[in-house]
Simulated assay, not measured.
Amino acid sequence: MRWIRCVAVATLAMTITACTTSPTGRQQLTLMSDAQLNQMGQEAFAQYQQDLPAAGQAQQRYAQCVASAIVDVLPERERNQDWQIRVFESEQANAFALPGGYMGVNTGLLAIAETQDQLASVIGHEIGHVLARHANERVSTQTSTQVALSVLGSAAGLQGPGGDQLMGALGLGAQYGIMLPFSRRHESEADVIGLRLMADAGFDPRASVALWENMSAQGGARPPEWMSTHPSHGQRMQGLQAEMGNAMARYEQARQAGRTPNCPRP
């Protein structure tokens, strides 16, 4: 049908003009410029700092020590980025990364990450999101999905209450069939990148599994896997274990090279 061809042509055009490769070798769709997203990241980070109270200086130094050890082993281009990390007073066990190298960790997560190595797995994961340009990819996927649905609705003449209902159903299908699984893929990829980074920096990669055991012990209701933006705790631990042989080899090389970070936990 003609409208199917229109959707295919529109999607193909965007894909051809914006294909990149992630650090793990996965093909990506990135429509936004890094400069645009970095500016957005800077503004969002400034807003975070206005909205959330900062933790104490000892906690800030601790997080900065771990982050600096990981940043030091990045390739030169990424290492020279203006990486910033802040610790915020919040009971939520959460951390985030924004384009441009802006990161935040809540004190609630510091309580669960019992060692410097466990915190390194969190920070390595967040740096992994930035290196893999996941924010760009997520925005680009949302944009291309909306364009495809818009072209579909116009070409198929889906107007009126019946058409609105069908387009709503198609939107839900895109959300659960494309957007959420894509987000889970990002989380799993950031786990792998973060595991490599923490090992290269001299942090024990086995601590990444211990961190998720701690997270699992916290309990709490979780949505069904297919409705979640994150893999289950069990899936994350399985994914980390699958990469552990390579990570341990990198860890041993880092230790032999004298990379032995020492970040006292406050």
Score class of each variant (00 low, 15 high):
residue 4 I to T: 06
residue 4 I to V: 09
residue 6 C to A: 13
residue 7 V to M: 11
residue 8 A to V: 14
residue 8 A to M: 13
residue 9 V to F: 15
residue 10 A to I: 00
residue 10 A to C: 01
residue 10 A to K: 00
residue 12 L to P: 03
residue 15 T to S: 06
residue 16 I to M: 12
residue 20 T to Y: 08
residue 26 R to C: 00
residue 29 L to I: 02
residue 35 A to V: 15
residue 35 A to N: 11
residue 37 L to A: 00
residue 37 L to H: 03
residue 37 L to V: 07
residue 38 N to Y: 10
residue 41 G to E: 02
residue 43 E to Q: 15
residue 44 A to V: 07
residue 48 Y to R: 14
residue 48 Y to H: 09
residue 51 D to N: 11
residue 54 A to L: 15
residue 56 G to Q: 13
residue 56 G to E: 15
residue 63 A to I: 14
residue 67 A to H: 13
residue 67 A to L: 15
residue 69 A to E: 12
residue 72 D to A: 14
residue 72 D to S: 09
residue 72 D to E: 08
residue 75 P to C: 05
residue 81 Q to S: 13
residue 82 D to K: 13
residue 82 D to E: 11
residue 84 Q to N: 09
residue 88 F to R: 07
residue 89 E to I: 02
residue 89 E to N: 09
residue 91 E to M: 06
residue 98 L to P: 05
residue 99 P to R: 08
residue 99 P to C: 11
residue 101 G to V: 08
residue 105 V to E: 11
residue 105 V to K: 12
residue 108 G to E: 08
residue 113 A to T: 09
residue 114 E to D: 12
residue 114 E to M: 07
residue 118 Q to D: 07
residue 118 Q to H: 10
residue 119 L to A: 01
residue 120 A to S: 07
residue 121 S to G: 11
residue 122 V to E: 03
residue 129 H to M: 12
residue 131 L to W: 08
residue 136 N to C: 12
residue 138 R to P: 01
residue 140 S to L: 01
residue 145 T to D: 11
residue 146 Q to F: 07
residue 151 V to W: 03
residue 152 L to G: 01
residue 154 S to Q: 13
residue 156 A to F: 01
residue 160 G to K: 00
residue 163 G to Q: 04
residue 165 Q to S: 14
residue 167 M to N: 02
residue 170 L to C: 01
residue 172 L to M: 07
residue 174 A to C: 06
residue 178 I to F: 15
residue 181 P to F: 08
residue 184 R to W: 15
residue 192 V to D: 09
residue 193 I to S: 03
residue 197 L to T: 09
residue 204 D to H: 04
residue 206 R to K: 04
residue 211 L to H: 05
residue 214 N to D: 04
residue 216 S to N: 01
residue 218 Q to A: 09
residue 218 Q to K: 10
residue 221 A to P: 06
residue 221 A to T: 14
residue 228 S to M: 10
residue 229 T to N: 04
residue 231 P to G: 01
residue 234 G to V: 02
residue 234 G to W: 02
residue 235 Q to D: 07
residue 238 Q to A: 03
residue 241 Q to Y: 05
residue 242 A to T: 05
residue 250 R to E: 06
residue 252 E to P: 00
residue 254 A to C: 04
residue 256 Q to N: 08
residue 258 G to F: 04
residue 261 P to Q: 14
residue 263 C to T: 00
residue 263 C to W: 05
residue 265 R to G: 00
residue 266 P to D: 08
